[in-house]
Nucleic acid binder design. Structure first.
Lengths: 178, 178
DNA sequence: GTATTCATGTAAAAAGTTACATGATTAT
DNA sequence: ATAATCATGTAACTTTTTACATGAATAC
């Protein structure tokens, strides 16, 4: 039970169609909970059946109908209740660390290349986050309260990427053969 | 395809039984790739069928037999090849960030308590990592090469926890109502 | 005597991934 | 003309989680 909550969290911000949601999951929410469009469409139907969402079909000129989903009161309460449940920290599943654990099995230049490649990805990601920060959150003190919570998640993203980059640099030195 | 690799990575370090592996997944490897015992037993059988592992039954006095699994040459090569595949950074899936994203829906003291509770978990985890570091990796320069790679993964664990803690403190201030 | 450790599984449900499918519209 | 965007799905598959199950041995 988790995509459920990510969807409710995204939709409470603003009601939208499955297609829009899918794009939303490619940005903000998707930075800490990614999902494919199939997952999203399936979950939306399920949540509507459960009465946590309700949809309204919008007829469009020269385009297929779209269904705008919004969170019901029942859905909001369900989400609130879930937020307050204590719960354990989400477990990590990180391929690069598995690879690193057994990294001595391959030769150093090859492993180093792998690290450089990952470092590149994290650099890119950090640049994206910083751009969002500069564009939408340049003055956090004046943000309306709901947006401060969103900004908090962005801050975690930034810190995570910075942490990756620092680690990459640290272990390049550590693992460099003498 | 990922638990496969985590198991191969763990077993190449030292062959062991399913039960031992399961405990290993509660420590070192499990810090970045957790798995339940059912997953592990199933995967071990599958990997033996594929010829990536081979097992040897050990008879024990007054105890059920145990099967010691070891990585075959084929398994080692398979693992090596996988390590060198570029691949995208593992996606994050973090409940606390989903909760934070919609955190304005609950009242501040309740949300703050949630943060404190998570902070406690990360503090504990960091203490565990630091203890391992002090016990086994006090002098990284003199470590044999394979252990340096393991130490690298521990360093990531430490950095991640530190990053969480710093974030918790940052957003406590950010989210505190005026 | 009660709980924990050793040792291994089956079964079912939930969640996530990948592939295939359609069809109009708008931008290059 | 070709690619990308809008819009929504079905089907099959893999992976992960949760529950149920057994049985002896040892530690408290």
């Amino acid at each position: 039970m988790a995509l459920t909550h990510a969807i409710l969290a995204a939709l409470q911000e603003e009601p939208c169609s499955g297609y829009d949601l899918m794009k939303r999951f490619d940005g903000s929410v998707g930075f800490f909970w990614q999902a494919s469009h199939q997952q999203i469409y399936r979950e939306l139907s399920k949540l509507e059946d459960l009465g946590l969402l309700q949809s309204e079909a919008i007829r469009q000129a020269h385009r297929p109908d779209k269904k705008i989903y919004r969170v019901t009161d029942k859905g909001l309460n369900y989400l609130r209740q879930w937020i307050l449940e204590p719960g354990a920290a989400s477990p990590t599943r990180d391929e690069l660390l598995v690879k690193t654990f057994a990294g001595h099995l391959v030769d150093w230049p090859a492993f180093k290349a792998l690290l450089e490649q990952q470092r590149g990805q994290h650099l890119e990601r950090l640049a994206i986050y910083r751009r969002i920060e500069a564009t939408y959150f340049s003055d956090p003190q004046t943000l309306p309260r709901p947006y401060r919570f969103q900004y908090a998640t962005l801050r975690k993203g930034i810190r995570s990427e910075e942490s990756w980059l620092a680690w990459c640099e640290e272990i390049m030195t550590l693992l460099q053969p003498d």
